[in-house]
Design a protein around this nucleic acid. Structure first.
Lengths: 239, 239
DNA sequence: CGCGGACTTGATGTCCCTCAAGCCGCGTGG
DNA sequence: CCACGCGGCTTGAGGGACATCAAGTCCGCG
């Protein structure tokens, strides 16, 4: 059930058997959500955190006139709102992009972990810091990269993150979201995303269609994006 | 010494006398840095976290060709790299913008806090989550707001954050940084920042010169920026 | 078979960038 | 005391990347 979370954690640190058990015991219900549903609205008090088991979710903030900025994409194994454990009410909303299966972790049980498992607590803390690292890298994209680099970077990031949880197969991974949603991630319009995707396709770098990404030339893509995966902390070491 | 940090924390939660003492005891050296110096280079292992006592600092990431994105500004009372406690090597650098005085918190002492003060640990965790909230709001600015809204938002945010630590005086606060640095925060060029500042000045909304910001019409500024301070969690409540 | 959502493409517009020059204030040194 | 240099600010002219508006086209699905 929490195997992808454990893969994600163990890519970064050792997790003992007792800690693994504590995590399993902290979980409560499994829930299924349909696609395109806001499951955690901004400002609402939360009493549990949500681990994404299957599907894709997104954090987003709305502006007036229907504008929206997606601030992070979530893949299986991600705690989409572990930070709600300390924030309670979130500053942003979280929605499903595809049908999703999630697992709930009641906050009182997480609090119990912080009382009895300091090291596991630090690993959980680390996971929320990792989200902040991703936020910063997106800020670089949004503030300084041009459209083609932004998209290249996004596809490189997802490649790296999905690989950790075993969801990449030979440069291919599922990404069943629309071009408009990609645009909302990278501060562009869907029209421009469409044109840039065409450019990437015609350059033989990557294909993104019918919800699947096929990367043909990862090194070239990483070069265009100035992608360096250090910010994802994929080298295992003690925290 | 750590009074501004305590002001910042107590704007969000109760901090007990024992917790305050634990924090004081966890501090080690005070250090002074000159302006414009990178004090925490990206990728270098850190063994302590840095509390900013006085001055302004910035987190930034470099790109090729001298481009740079500042991902957060830090004001007195901010832990500029509390996240280095769990990340160790940072994904970004931290520099001084002005002469700064800082206070070091060795990581082993922070680890001791996580072993003995679960609630204080959660408050520290909260502080790193607060940085992530600020990152997300900046992502909205960078991705979706136009130049005038971006600057308006930045000045509103700094107003709110400086007020918490008592550094706002009747709509005025010190901000001794250059227009080029403002540009690096908000993904613009210094030329354009200059033009937009002129626009804000001529509209009677705010003045930013010789390192000082004077806000003349905060409500109007907040309206332009679509600034809502909820993401700063300034209402005191239990974590 | 027809509908609707997503994708595609063209024409036009605009916000911000780039390049360039000049100005202003201030510290330094002759 | 003034010349000078320098960093930061200011302003203009021109250009480009991306947005906007507007038609389609494609395709899965009822």
């Amino acid at each position: 059930m929490i195997d992808k979370l454990l893969m994600k954690m163990r890519a970064r640190d050792e997790i003992g058997a007792d800690e693994e058990r504590a995590l399993r015991d902290a979980a409560s219900d499994v829930v299924d959500y349909p696609a395109d549903k806001t499951v955690i609205p901004a400002g609402k008090e939360n009493v549990f955190s949500t681990l994404l088991l299957d599907g894709l979710m997104a954090r987003y903030k709305d502006l007036s006139q229907g504008q929206r900025q997606i601030t992070e994409l979530h893949v299986p194994g991600d705690f989409v709102d572990l930070h709600s454990f300390s924030l309670k009410r979130l500053d942003h909303s979280v929605m499903t992009l595809t049908p999703c299966r999630i697992l709930k972790f009641p906050h009182d049980r997480l609090a119990a972990i912080t009382e009895r498992f300091p090291h596991l607590t630090r690993v959980l803390w680390f996971l929320t810091n990792l989200d902040a690292c991703i936020h910063r890298e997106w800020a670089v994209s949004l503030g300084r990269r041009n459209a083609i680099s932004r998209l290249a970077h996004l596809f490189c990031e997802l490649h790296a993150r999905l690989e950790v949880v075993g969801l990449v197969d030979g440069g291919r991974y599922a990404l069943p979201i629309t071009q408009a949603e990609v645009a909302e991630c990278m501060g562009l319009t869907s029209v421009h995303v469409n044109r840039v995707l065409k450019e990437l396709r015609e350059a033989g770098l990557l294909d993104f269609k019918s919800g699947k990404v096929t990367i043909h030339d990862l090194p070239a893509l990483a070069r265009i994006a100035e992608f360096t995966p250090a910010y994802l902390y994929l080298d295992r070491r003690q925290l």
